[in-house]
């Protein structure tokens, strides 16, 4: 940077093959309803947290499936676990349990404390 006055930009691309999907595998084994998400966003619209922060459960679902774990780890702390998302989901995804299991997986696999 000092020498040239500019530096490399990190690619925004989701590199599916380089990513680790152990967290989502852990969740899907215990909560297969996550597969049923059709990304309608109803959970995010109903979400207490999502109305005041950038938290979106819909986005969390995709990020988990793509293995973008760094983003998920940081974002799911915001969930208040109120459960309104489960009430509105048209596909019957147990959304609240997905958050629980994600936290569990991060703790078990990575020793991460929430």
């Amino acid at each position: 940077m000092e020498k040239f006055g500019f530096s490399l930009t990190k690619a925004r691309v989701i590199d599916y093959d380089a990513n680790d999907r152990s967290i989502v595998s852990y969740i899907l084994e215990r909560e297969p309803s996550l597969n049923l998400c059709i990304e309608c966003g109803c959970c995010s619209a109903a979400c207490t947290t999502g109305n005041f922060t950038g938290f979106s459960l819909r986005e969390i679902h995709i990020l988990l499936k793509r293995g973008e774990n760094d983003l998920v780890r940081q974002k799911i702390r915001k969930c208040m676990l109120c459960g309104k998302c489960i009430l509105v989901c048209p596909r019957g995804v147990n959304t609240r349990n997905v958050v629980f299991l994600a936290k569990q997986a991060f703790t078990k696999n990575e020793g991460y404390e929430f």
């Binding site: 040239f4 006055g5 500019f6 530096s7 490399l8 930009t9 690619a11």
Partner: peptide
Amino acid sequence: VQANRGYSLSNTVK
């Protein structure tokens, strides 16, 4: 613009 050249460089590196 010098400060933007990282973008140009990053594409070449890709």
